[in-house]
Design a protein around this nucleic acid. Structure first.
Length: 422
RNA sequence: GUGACUGUAGCUCAGCUGGUAGAGCCCUGGACUGUGACUCCGGUGGUCGCGGGUUCGAACCCCGUCAGUCACCCCA
């Protein structure tokens, strides 16, 4: 029988990597906490309809990337491909959005059936932040500032660039899309297959094509900025000046178009060149129409999401991984002294509750146990020896280069002695 | 979904034009050492991703399949 293995594109995260993940998660928690955001948790499965109506019927995500199936009741369900739709559904369903402001955050796995590659997996983790009921650019700036604070906390700010754009209201985008379509129709002989596919369904997506021929063609195309309302432009200008005063550098990228339909006005992405093809680490923007579109009372909103795997990759390639936790004390236990070791370990953990106290299990010579203590990077070894123990003493050894001492300590004093040293 | 490359011990890899597998590291037992580090001796561990085919014989050739990597596409 063939060995069972993980589903394609779904990764196990092993002990060697979990410290980096924990560092990332705790940094995120610290940042959202000090910005006053509250956690919300919502299911991994939703009605397929929710994603179709929010993300957009003709987007790649719902067209070909969702894990959808009929459950036993015949309802069509989907694993969430992103967080915003479920967050809005949950918040609206429980009345969190009715005439009030909310600052929310979530984290968890998302699912998209794409061909896996570096920084892109079929199950992946996102952190997301959503803010409801605030119409001005001040909240947009706050969201960006929050993300920038996280980069600072992680020490990766210098490897990230902020790109922003104003994509206007959906009606404006429709008008622009029509203009873009007719422009491209006039040059249909120069369009690549992908552009031809999107010509009528989603022409704006042609804007960020990586095909140089398309980009050459688009130089002469109508500009989205010319179709955006004065209000949108003013909102965007205010955002830029807020970012300026906050000291957050940005680039205006007129080609920046988000892949989900619900965005409007200002959108942004944090990008890096440290990750190969997956340059976007964080993306978001305003989505003022989504709540109403999903059946709620009209509520303005903005938010962003970031990909944890990509951030972990960045931490690794930039050498910002935390050190693996090392034991403070390793107890060397000769055969027949398990009870003494257990009692000693309990006493040490009571005195030093934050430290890792490892007691050797499985027997073996003291010499090889000590070797294990060194291998694990333990700072001290508490060596039980029968003749010493009869005198109520234990041997304490410092195992690091700086602390290469060896001393005999009364067993009862060992917790206090170690507390002094550590 | 498309393309290119890859798939041999836990890890990193070798295996010439086909003759049923090797090294280093790791782990482990022992010797030595004033109870780890250096040195010496020994040991565990492989359906050569999987399934077919060609052949007297395949890790090596052919087909399929699964998985990985990178890129396209798309996005976090």
């Amino acid at each position: 029988m063939a060995k069972l293995q993980a589903i394609r594109g779904m990764n196990d995260i092993l002990p060697a990597q979990t410290p980096t993940w924990q560092a990332l998660e705790s940094a995120f928690h610290r940042v959202v906490h000090r910005f006053g955001y509250q956690e919300i948790r919502f299911p991994v499965l939703e009605q397929t309809q929710l994603f179709k109506r929010s993300i957009g019927e003709v987007t790649d995500i719902v067209e070909k990337e969702m894990y959808s199936f009929d459950d036993r009741n015949g309802d069509n369900l989907s694993l969430r491909p992103e967080g915003t739709a479920g967050c809005v559904r949950a918040a609206d369903q429980h009345g969190l959005l009715y005439n009030q402001q909310q600052r929310l955050w979530y984290q968890g796995p998302m699912f998209r059936h794409e061909r896996p590659q570096k920084g892109r997996y079929r199950q992946f983790q996102q952190f997301g932040v959503e803010a409801f009921g605030m119409a001005g650019p001040d909240i947009d700036a706050e969201l960006i500032q929050l993300s920038a604070d996280l980069w600072r906390e992680l020490g990766i700010g210098s490897a990230l660039t902020l790109q922003i754009n104003n994509i206007g209201a959906s009606a404006e985008r429709r008008a622009y899309g029509a203009a873009l379509t007719s422009f491209l129709e006039a040059h249909s002989d120069r369009l690549d297959a992908d552009a031809r596919n999107r010509l009528y369904s989603n022409p704006l997506r042609i804007l960020d094509s990586k095909n140089p021929d398309m980009q050459d063609l688009l130089v002469a195309a109508p500009a989205l900025a010319d179709y955006v309302s004065d209000e949108s432009v003013q909102h965007f200008d205010e955002l830029k000046s807020l970012l300026d005063s906050a000291g957050i550098a940005y680039e205006v990228n007129p080609r920046l178009v988000r892949g989900l339909d619900y965005y409007n006005n200002c959108v942004f992405e944090w990008v890096t060149d440290a990750l190969g093809a997956q340059g976007t680490v964080c993306g978001g923007g305003r989505y003022d129409g989504l709540v109403e579109q999903l059946g709620g009372k009209a509520t303005v909103a903005a938010g962003f999401a970031m990909g944890s795997e990509r951030l972990v990759l960045m931490l690794e390639t930039l050498g910002k991984e935390p050190q693996a936790p090392r034991p403070a004390v390793y107890i060397v236990v000769p055969t027949g002294f398990a009870k003494d070791a257990l009692a000693l370990a309990t006493a040490l953990r009571a005195e030093l509750p934050e430290q890792i106290i490892l007691s050797h299990c499985g027997g073996g010579k003291p010499a090889s146990q000590l070797k294990k203590a060194f291998t694990l990077g333990a700072r001290y070894a508490a060596v039980i020896e029968s003749d010493l123990l009869e005198q109520g003493k234990i041997k304490l050894r410092g195992l690091t280069d700086e602390e290469g001492f060896e001393e005999q300590v009364p067993v009862d004093d060992l917790p206090r002695r170690l507390a002094e040293l550590i």
